[in-house]
Write a protein that binds this DNA or RNA. Structure first.
Length: 471
RNA sequence: GGCGGAGUAGCCAAGUGGUAAGGCAGGGCUCUGCAAAAGCCCCAUUCGUCGGUUCGAUUCCGACCUCCGCCUCCA
């Protein structure tokens, strides 16, 4: 079976075929963060999803070029730069660094390229010039340059690939009515925003005067620069379908005349939103977790990653602290099994056991069915534990099983749990307890166990002697 | 109002026109001096409701109920 992925363009699960004639190289663009604040756990759901897809493509043998933009100029950013009396670079640099630290904590592979909008102004201007030259973009009386959806459609292009748009049925709400710009049509969107006093020092020169890029144009300019005018995959959160991605398609396909059968992006994928405690995240409800909030509650990036990877990317997922705590036990079961295999397998190098890999691949090929994939992993855990308990696993068999898990984990990216170094005080208590047990002084040995527990360690007696684990 | 998604055990969740994966919690057992966040085993005659098609439906069709998301800030 081949890899199949849902495509928002067709609303169907389709066989994934790269544009590369050799079928090897894959260009993948993900809409990255707007660096105006700490990213929250909902944002990271999307980034963990894109990381999962990239890793699975690599597992399937593709040579992936992963590009993720950093939006470092935008209304909210400019407002905060003014409020804090700082510079754009200093402000966005801080949140970009924080974002990447969180990204790393969640064990996401760094994209190969992290282009910043402010470093692509010439490409953005060039793209807008093409649109102006084709008559699809116009400079309004307010000095800003807008994209004309009417003109675009007049060129034979379709607006509304990703969502079924019904302009008449749309609620033209307060947000549209309150728009301060002087557009020809309400649906037109800004490509270049004319400099206003509130922008402070944030502006660049352009053929239309000083100003800054609109929100959508950066992604068209940067994705095409780094991945070519047509590329394979474009990902983002579901909220980006409209208007952001729709407008990206319009800008790109409006600026370049694509030959029949070619288009800006072959395959669009969107991750569903995360709910927190049953509700959409919002600051007023206080259900707004940043990664550091959760790390502060004692959860690890690895545990959070594991929880985010349990849900299918297109399914709405309810994030709860209880759920996170529950997953800890599940992950521990897996770690325990892998740890035992590691002990037994030693350094033996053998090819991976096929059973787990086949079940895993079958599940993941089906639009990244992680639930089925985890099902396969845990069936394998139970089976492996059974053999382990019965002493039925030889060293090469354990090594093969471990190798299979390692391949799977190249995709899940959980790695090994960080084992805390055992402090001398704890080690001394373990030894004292063991000595008391040998002397059959169980009162003393139980006291030692209680003391260990108070220090946050749990002791387990195994055939190989006592073992301590962090509580 | 328009568009889209979802309802499967206490909770999370996969799946199929032929009789329900997996995880958490719970129960039993094993190991143990006792234990264990160690291991094994058990745990839905039933898949929102009502009809229809069918030898057979949770799976297909129709209606209804409920929940959620998007509709120009948003991952």
């Amino acid at each position: 079976m081949a890899l199949q992925l849902f495509n928002t363009l067709t609303r169907k699960v389709e066989k994934f075929t790269p544009l590369d004639p050799e079928g090897r190289r894959v260009g993948m663009y993900c809409c990255g963060p707007t660096v105006h604040d700490f990213a929250h756990i909902g944002n990271f759901r999307t980034f963990v999803f894109t990381d999962l897809l990239r890793r699975y493509l690599e597992f399937r043998g593709y040579d992936v070029l992963h590009v993720m933009n950093i939006t470092d100029v935008e209304d909210k950013i400019i407002k905060r730069v003014q409020q804090r009396h700082t510079t754009l670079r200093e402000f966005t640099g801080k949140y970009e660094a924080e974002f990447l630290a969180d990204f790393d904590a969640l064990q996401c592979k760094r994209p190969h390229l992290l282009p910043r909008a402010t470093e692509h102004i010439p490409e953005i201007v060039a793209l807008i010039e093409k649109l102006v030259a084709r008559g699809i973009a116009y400079q309004a009386a307010d000095g800003s340059v807008y994209f004309s959806i009417e003109k675009y459609r007049g060129c034979g292009c379709q607006y509304g690939h990703l969502v079924n748009l019904n302009f008449d049925g749309m609620r033209v709400g307060e947000r549209v009515a309150s728009d301060e710009y002087e557009k020809e049509a309400v649906a037109d969107f800004a490509l270049w925003k004319k400099r206003v006093p509130e922008d402070g020092e944030v502006f660049w020169p352009s053929p239309w005067g000083e100003g800054r890029p609109g929100w959508h144009i950066e992604c068209s300019a940067m994705s095409m620069k780094h991945l070519g005018e047509s590329f394979d995959l474009h990902l983002g959160g579901e909220d980006l379908m409209f208007p952001h991605h729709e407008d990206e398609i319009a800008q790109s396909e409006g600026a370049l005349k694509y030959p029949p059968g070619r288009r800006f992006v072959e395959h669009w994928m969107h991750g569903s939103h995360l709910l927190v405690e049953g509700k959409k995240m919002s600051k007023s409800l206080g259900n707004f977790f940043t990664l550091r909030d959760l790390l502060g509650k004692g959860f690890s990036g690895r545990e959070i990653r594991h929880l985010l990877l349990k849900a299918h990317y297109r399914a709405q997922f309810n994030f709860t602290l209880d759920g996170l705590a529950g997953e800890r036990a599940s992950l521990a079961r897996l770690d325990e099994c892998v740890g035992k295999l590691r002990e037994l397998a030693d350094e033996v190098v053998v090819p991976p056991e096929q059973g787990l890999l086949m079940a895993f691949t079958k599940a993941m090929d089906d639009d990244l069915n992680v639930s089925a994939a985890w099902g396969a992993v845990f069936e394998w855990v139970t089976e492996t534990n059974r053999k382990l308990a019965a002493n039925q696993l030889t060293k090469p068999q354990a090594a093969a099983a471990l190798e299979a898990w390692n391949r799977v984990d190249e995709v899940f990216g959980l790695g090994t749990a960080k084992t805390d170094a055992v402090p001398a005080e704890v080690q001394a208590l373990v030894e004292a307890r063991q000595a008391a047990r040998k002397a059959k002084d169980f009162k003393r040995s139980d006291e030692a166990r209680d003391q260990l527990k108070a220090l946050g360690w749990v002791v387990e007696d195994t055939p190989k002697g006592p073992r301590v684990k962090r509580l």
